[in-house]
Write a protein that binds this DNA or RNA. Structure first.
Lengths: 124, 124
DNA sequence: ATACGACTTAAACCATGGTTTAAGTCAAGC
DNA sequence: GCTTGACTTAAACCATGGTTTAAGTCGTAT
């Protein structure tokens, strides 16, 4: 089994080591292994879980929610339905956020158009 | 000229008075008037500017950027082009954010589909 | 004249999501 | 054997975006 050090993972994911340690401390990287010297070992499985963390973080899931999701993964089958619910709710929040941004785009476009016209009038 | 008190504006926009005072303190509500007793008076103009602040906040513009934009509005015509640039950049960030969320939707959908299948397999 | 409700301020407090710092451990190369 | 680089920790620090608290000022209704 190939393991990556925190430095390698930091480079691969372009995430500061301090952030990876912070995520571990906050419970976002459960079941992480250590070598005899206490150094974190990231397996392929850990990398896949970290990829999920990155997805959730980029889509604005709070750290406490990510932690709960990761804890449920560790608990296994009994939490399948709760994880399904959580993903459905998260998807809905993502759709709501997309809708909100789309709804505000015309407001920004109006300001852009108005400024273009005003600039034309200012210097004829 | 009809003026609204901070309590009325709070109720109209559904924003806590404490937040409105915080925005004022941070320079998001320039040119706000006061009565003889020092109480804030929101004119129609102020309400329109507050509506813009709400739009920017909902679309995740940082408070410091909103403040700069509001300061440029006060400066008037000389800042028209900079405000146009700012709106174009903000629109692009909104589009980028929409694209990012859209790009992650399939990842979430895969998890949802996977959980549905696993739950079916668990209880036949 | 006094109590009440709506407002004011400055300063303290809070949550979130980290980064930085200081001190230490360990393996490897010189 | 000793330095160097990569790692470890706890604790302090930081930025953002507010809310809460304490103390005070008005205007009005009783």
């Amino acid at each position: 089994m190939k393991y990556n050090s925190i430095g390698e993972v930091s480079a691969l994911f372009n995430i500061p080591e301090s952030a990876l340690r912070y995520y571990d401390k906050k419970g976002l990287l459960p079941l992480i292994e250590r070598d005899d010297a206490g150094r974190r070992l990231f397996s392929e499985r850990q990398m896949a879980l970290l990829q999920a963390v990155v997805c959730f973080k980029n889509t604005h899931m709070p750290i406490n929610s990510i932690r709960k999701y990761m804890e449920m993964i560790v608990e296994g089958a009994p939490t399948l339905e709760r994880r399904l619910d959580m993903m459905r709710e998260h998807k809905q929040r993502m759709l709501d956020e997309i809708a909100l941004l789309n709804d505000y785009l015309p407001t920004i476009d109006e300001k852009i158009e108005r400024y273009i016209k005003q600039i034309e009038e200012e210097r004829p």
